[in-house]
């Protein structure tokens, strides 16, 4: 189901995973993304950010689809949580909002994004909730955050 076009061209930089998706290094993402777009994968379906619980590693999964040739492609990048990833928002415009959500909820920084700011959470929120090591803050804007029923009963 997944296409082999990327792994054929960039053999040394990709690792093929069991379910057919391709793992690349985040430094190569800039060149590979342009190649992916030029080979006809014009529809970026989804950008998912996930948190591997060990050693501060975060991951991104990009799902592409080609409307003309009806082929799928999944690309995964895993990196330390302090790195900045090349933003593909200028190539696929739908990535604009998906990357903002990844930044908002997981804290991944994107390099070259037109307007990287929080999208789902309020602008003055601190922290990135979807991370596995996230704890709820004590107070938000002066209001105590309830941890159990004793706060309101």
């Amino acid at each position: 189901m997944n296409d082999n076009i990327v792994s054929d061209k960039f053999k040394e930089k990709c690792t093929l995973l069991d379910n057919g998706s391709i793992m690349i290094d985040f430094n190569d993402w800039e060149s590979i993304s342009q190649f992916v777009y030029d080979s006809g994968f014009d529809y970026l379906m989804c950008i998912t950010s996930y948190d591997l619980e060990s050693d501060d590693t975060l991951g991104l999964a990009y799902n592409f689809y080609s409307t003309s040739e009806k082929k799928y492609l999944e690309i995964r990048i895993e990196f330390n949580n302090k790195e900045e990833i090349f933003s593909i928002a200028n190539i696929w415009r739908t990535a604009d909002w998906h990357e903002r959500e990844a930044y908002d909820l997981m804290g991944i920084l994107f390099k070259g994004h037109p307007d990287l700011k929080r999208i789902l959470l309020p602008d003055d929120w601190e922290g990135h909730p979807l991370r596995k090591d996230w704890e709820e803050p004590e107070y938000y804007n002066g209001m105590p955050v309830p941890k159990d029923k004793s706060y309101w009963e």
Partner: peptide
Amino acid sequence: YIRSDGKNIPTRLKMRSPAYCNLS
């Protein structure tokens, strides 16, 4: 997009909603 680690709860579940991209 569901990632599972072999447990009975998902490790990561992401829902890509159509209206999100339609609104952009």
